[in-house]
């Protein structure tokens, strides 16, 4: 239905980028998830205005778009830090001491699960199995996986990311 447009306060550039993503995925069997994933990839998260725009462009109720965006843990409706830390919470890592790893991250950054540091640098999340159980406990920082973690290793890794604010940790 061609509903009354709510004229979200998106910039023209953002709007155009969303149009391009929709154009790319619109013929997929279920385009919504692909589109949300790609838009999040570009902007880091899915803002209310982006969700409204996607809903209008696809003629899917906003309630449904919002429902999908909040169902998947890899999609986020809130802005996140520059670096996203995901500590594995699955059983094999748990046995190898993932709780102590998680505590080390919390102590080092002073934030709890789901929170972002005040400087906007780090967001802490948990994740289900990363598939590298042989080197547990494990965590991911952005797209990189780290295994055989100890409290000391966690501190070193985080300090390296914190130092390099440009995010190009090699």
């Amino acid at each position: 239905m061609n509903a009354c447009s709510t004229a979200p306060t998106l910039s023209t550039e953002t709007d155009k980028q969303i149009d391009r993503v929709i154009e790319e995925y619109k013929d997929e069997p279920s385009p919504l998830l692909e589109i949300l994933n790609e838009v999040q990839h570009i902007f880091g998260y899915l803002s209310d205005d982006m969700l409204i725009a996607i809903s209008e462009k696809l003629s899917i109720p906003t309630s449904q778009v919002y429902g999908v965006a909040t169902f998947y843990s890899l999609l986020s409706t809130r802005p996140k830090g520059k670096h996203i830390i995901r500590v594995c919470e699955s059983a094999p890592c748990h046995v190898m001491g993932s709780e102590s790893v998680l505590r080390a991250v919390k102590d080092e950054l002073g934030i709890d699960l789901g929170e972002t540091t005040p400087d906007g640098l780090f967001t802490l999340e948990s994740t289900s199995c990363l598939g590298i159980c042989s080197v547990g406990p494990a965590m991911m920082v952005n797209d990189r996986v780290f295994g055989n973690l100890t409290r000391e290793k966690v501190r070193l890794i985080l300090r390296r990311y914190a130092k390099d604010k440009e995010a190009s940790v090699s």
């Binding site: 209310d48 969700l51 809903s55 109720p61 309630s63 429902g67 909040t70």
Partner: peptide
Amino acid sequence: CQEVQGVGILFPVGRGFATEITTPLD
């Protein structure tokens, strides 16, 4: 709301224990 009235204002949001039925953008 969706099928009979075609309005679609209510939808499940979140997952697991945190699941809720709520409005668009809560």
